[in-house]
């Protein structure tokens, strides 16, 4: 059975005005897998989600969701998937409870069953107290939670989440993380999540693909991606910014690449353990004091900068 799987073959999308949003994306997500699609602004994440959820059609290529072709079997696809788009889809004049009931009715539940399901979900997303308020008055976090609940009404096999935590404070972000992790682990729901936050992908996903300018540039588990960059990071804290600047100059020759942020200098090197003594010697020769020095494997942040040439979350 292919329920809960996503298969994408050479997906291309050219918008009017010759904008090539996708230039041949292929990927495959297994049943129950937590997949993260990571990329900077305009990379093509939302376009991919809109194609996979039957909202727009691809220019070429093929996509199967739970084994159904998104182009020719959109009705079957819609029953399989829950979707929370980048922009929440909420009618501000209605209450959270009403929206959940309407959603359930459209998925074929009787009005009694719809009421019951709404109560369950409101409980689950901690919105029972605000259930009868118009959601135009909800906070950003409450809206996101309601939008997530709306996508869960029919207990979908696959959940598509387009930047579900963008613009949320840390408390709300973690609440959403918990909820989707539970769905994935307890119900075995396949998750396809897009994000601009590396931390989010690192925390949640089993497998990540990084997309840039309409093409997947690298895929693998978070660990694999970090290993693939093939470098370690040596991080040094100096006494002050001036000392750090001086240190960075001295060490530039030893590093493949380095960054400085006030009194902290980060240096990318191959085989860090063996190079460490060189660092200490160089600084010692100039009697530059350092408060701390440590060697760490690269973070996803470092991978992201390497493959896209961009800082996370910037265009």
């Amino acid at each position: 059975m292919s329920a809960g799987t996503i298969e994408v073959y050479d997906l291309q999308k050219t918008f009017k005005g010759d904008v090539q949003a996708l230039k041949g994306v292929s990927l495959s997500v297994g049943k129950g897998e937590f997949f993260a699609f990571l990329g900077p602004n305009g990379a093509g994440k939302s376009t991919t989600i809109q194609i996979l959820t039957t909202l727009i059609s691809p220019t070429s290529g093929r996509a199967l969701v739970s084994g159904y072709d998104v182009l020719t079997q959109p009705e079957q696809v819609r029953l399989e998937i829950g979707v929370a788009l980048q922009e929440t889809g909420i009618d501000p004049a209605l209450t959270g409870r009403e929206l959940l009931e309407i959603q359930a009715r459209h998925f074929g539940m009787s009005s009694v069953a719809a009421k019951k399901r709404a109560v369950e979900l409101l409980e689950k997303i901690n919105l029972t107290e605000d259930a009868n308020r118009r959601c135009g008055n909800y906070s950003g976090g409450m809206r996101r939670r309601l939008d997530l609940a709306l996508s869960l009404v029919h207990r979908p096999n696959i959940l598509f989440l387009d930047e579900p935590t963008t613009g949320l404070d840390p408390v709300n972000r973690i609440a959403i993380w918990e909820e989707i992790r539970n769905l994935n682990q307890q119900l075995g729901t396949t998750i396809f999540l897009t994000t601009q936050y590396l931390e989010e992908a690192d925390q949640l996903a089993e497998r990540i693909s990084i997309i840039d300018k309409g093409q997947i540039v690298i895929s693998g588990t978070p660990k694999e991606l970090k290993r693939r960059i093939g470098m370690d990071v040596i991080e040094m804290h100096f006494a002050d910014e001036a000392a750090a600047t001086r240190g960075a100059q001295l060490l530039a020759g030893l590093c493949k690449q380095h960054t400085q942020q006030r009194e902290i200098v980060k240096c990318f090197v191959e085989d860090g353990t063996r190079r460490l003594p060189d660092f200490v010697r160089t600084l010692d020769a100039e009697s530059l004091q350092i408060h701390s020095l440590n060697l760490a494997p690269p973070t996803l942040d470092d991978v992201f900068i390497q493959v896209t040439g961009k800082k996370e979350g910037t265009a």
Binding site: T53, T54, L55, E75, R78, L79, I81, V83, L85, E87, T88, G89, I90, D91, P92, Q103, H106, F107, G108, L150
Partner: peptide, 16 residues
């Protein structure tokens, strides 16, 4: 109104 507040897409994603 529905198109602007995104609810139209939400409805298109249901089997309605």
């Amino acid at each position: 109104r529905d198109l602007e507040n995104g609810y139209f897409s939400r409805l298109l994603l249901t089997p309605a």
